[in-house]
Amino acid sequence: MSSKRPASISDLRQRVARARLPGGDRAVTERARRMLDVYLETADTHGLALADVARELKSGTAALRIGGAELEQQATSAALRDAACAPGCAFCCILAGEDGAVIFEAEARALHGALVPLAGEPDGRDWSARACPALDPETRACRAYDARPMVCRAYVSPDAEACRQVAEGIPAPGPGLLGGRAVSLAVQMLARAALQGVATVPSFSLSAVAAAAVEGREIDAALREARHKPRVMDDERKRAAGD
């Protein structure tokens, strides 16, 4: 990657074209590359400022729009048609590991904004110690549903019992993520490569952001606490690809 700072959206497109991502699904990477190039070409055609486009890349806004378009194309897929998901099930909201999930800055800000008005109220951890703080502990409904991150939107399963087993740490076939999640991760990593030397492109812990919000901490403090080291996004993309 050239050390010369991009002076135009065209320069960003060239950086995206040259970027090489470690691991992951090559077909997903190339699809993400094509979609991001179209995104940037459209921004250039409409005369958007380089600084504004860079902010959209840094925050994950571009990755989420592209990943969201991918999810919309899968709206009639068998995976969604056969999904056993129902209100109150919530086993998918038992978060794995310390992070729960990897999310982008735009997602972190939206999630925090939806939950901070609920500060001090009982949260999902009153139902299960590892549950997402966004949950209502009585109904097990997501209290930030409209602001839920891509990883939540993309998760589906044909078998609620399998979800329960996975939540308990028992491997089970069935639950998984739709392709929009992998695409959005690949787009964000391409954006990180394109903005090298210009801006840092961070990722954040879903569980840490949600916990900070319901415990009443302001957004800047929440982002500081939840921010990942750069390697985490690489590892998440590899996990999504099954590497």
Rank of each mutant, 00 (worst) to 15 (best):
A96L: 13
Y145S: 07
K229A: 15
C93T: 05
R31H: 10
M150V: 05
G242F: 03
S184P: 04
G120T: 07
I170C: 07
D159Q: 09
R153H: 12
E225Q: 15
S10N: 14
D126A: 15
A172C: 08
R153Q: 13
D126T: 13
D126K: 11
T200I: 11
L48E: 02
L190N: 00
E30W: 10
Q74F: 06
D136V: 12
D82G: 00
A78R: 09
A54Y: 00
S77R: 05
P22S: 15
P87H: 09
A241L: 06
S59V: 07
C89Q: 11
K238S: 13
Q74E: 15
E41W: 13
L40S: 05
A114T: 03
I66E: 00
A241V: 04
D25G: 08
A211H: 05
L177E: 10
E138S: 11
W127L: 03
S205Y: 05
I66L: 06
E225P: 00
M150W: 03
D159N: 15
R55N: 12
V166F: 07
A119E: 10
V28D: 07
A210K: 04
F91S: 09
A119Y: 10
A129L: 14
A49G: 14
A84K: 02
A182Q: 06
R164P: 04
A211L: 14
V116W: 06
A131Y: 03
T76K: 14
L64C: 13
L80N: 03
E215C: 09
R143Q: 13
K238H: 10
G120V: 08
P175Y: 00
G176V: 02
Q196Y: 12
V209D: 03
R34F: 13
T29Y: 07
A62R: 01
L115T: 02
E168H: 15
A186I: 04
T42P: 05
L40I: 06
L50E: 02
H112N: 04
G68T: 01
G60E: 00
